[in-house]
């Protein structure tokens, strides 16, 4: 299991891109931190999630 925004998910072995798709987040509107480090957008496809990882997905909405 790994943690995304404080909740546990069984997404071991998935990439960040696959996890975002599974959760319904659009890649153009998020910032993703893996174990407190930012994941650059061009590494979403190549960054694989492992047991015990902490993923923080900040989803932005419009208005300002």
């Amino acid at each position: 299991m790994l943690t995304i925004n404080g909740r546990e998910y069984d997404l071991n072995g998935k990439t960040v891109s696959e996890a975002l798709a599974e959760l319904g987040y659009g890649e153009q509107r998020v910032a993703v931190e893996l174990n407190e480090s930012i994941v650059p957008k061009d590494q979403y496809n190549s960054t694989v999630l492992y047991e015990g990882d902490h993923l923080e997905v900040v989803r932005f909405v419009g208005g300002g």
Binding site: Q28, P40, G63
Partner: peptide
């Protein structure tokens, strides 16, 4: 005001200027 622009700025600052403090707004 636009969500994709917010994400662009936040991602760029976190990647390229990691020593800065960053305060963002989303959802009002």
């Amino acid at each position: 005001d636009k969500a994709d622009q917010k994400a662009m700025l936040v991602n760029t600052v976190l990647e390229k200027l990691p020593d800065k403090y960053l305060v963002s707004g989303s959802g009002m």
